[in-house]
Amino acid sequence: MTDQVTFPDAVQWAIPFFIAAILAEFIWIAVKGKGGRYETRDSVTSLIMGAGNIASDLMVGFLIWAGFMWLWQITPLNLGTSIPVIILCFVLDDLRYYWVHRFGHRIRWVWASHVNHHSSQHYNLTTALRQTWTYSFTFMMVVRSPLILLGFHPAMVLFCGGVNLVYQFWIHTEAIKKMPRWFEAVMNTPSHHRAHHGRNARYLDCNYAGTFIIWDKLFGTFVPEQEDDKVDYGLVHNIGTFNPLRVAFHEWVGIWRDATQPGLTVRQRLAYCFAPPGYSHDGSRDNSEQIKAKHIARHPEDRGSPGFEQFETDMPNSQAKRV
């Protein structure tokens, strides 16, 4: 057996860089008087969420590793660990990230884990570290299986995922407005990811990219940040707690309470678990489509603009055609 393949844990080794970069951004904002906002309790909560994420990885990591190594035993394919293979692995794992992240916003079961990354009303480098404690509950790690079965070594796949997360750290900032045009076209950037963190109707369910923004352009989820629609960070229903335990588990508790209330059909119970966030059996809540539709009702002028493409522009003569 030649399974002595080891890669460093990119996230752990990046911690000193994270700390230095947070200090640098904080001082930059203090000196310039713009480029972002910091608040003590918000940041502390984010940092504790980050620490808890590393702890939960340490706790369940060996189980996931065992599963991945089992897949590695049964696959006849081995692509080795050459540089081109690592690059290919990174690109394919980024595609994997796109879909897991998209599921994370469109399936409440996965959203219950991912929601906490969006639970801050701030957007600074500490927000990047506000990471889930409950990823293993979602079973989304199975989405990595095809990569391993294709012959990418599990250690390399995990390394690429780690590098991807480290890449996403620096884009959680308001200090950088726009990167050069070619970079904005290919890569995920502070501007693209700010839009992803927006609770504005326009920005709901957009820009799921990890490292390469091309996936959003390919799969029709790209919405560029708009000068005239400043991003309002956070959740549609912002939470009122800094308690890390409540931040980590609030949506799981919500699922439990919704799905176990008396008098529902099995179908309704399942929808509370797996339908897009905002589902309700009695129409008392709005999902993102309904929020967008209500926004268009209030602001018809936004019809057809980025994030509202599904609402056709009302041309003077399109009215007649629809008769």
């Binding site: 911690i15 000193p16 994270f18 700390i19 947070i22 200090l23 904080f26 203090a30 910091y38 608040e39 003590t40 309790r41 940041s43 502390v44 940092l47 504790i48 620490a51 590393i54 500490t126």
Partner: peptide, 19 residues
Amino acid sequence: LVVGGIAGITLMMHLAGKS
């Protein structure tokens, strides 16, 4: 790193009046 980093950043923000 984790404990020192969190404590240091918290203290700095609080002293800078961000609470």
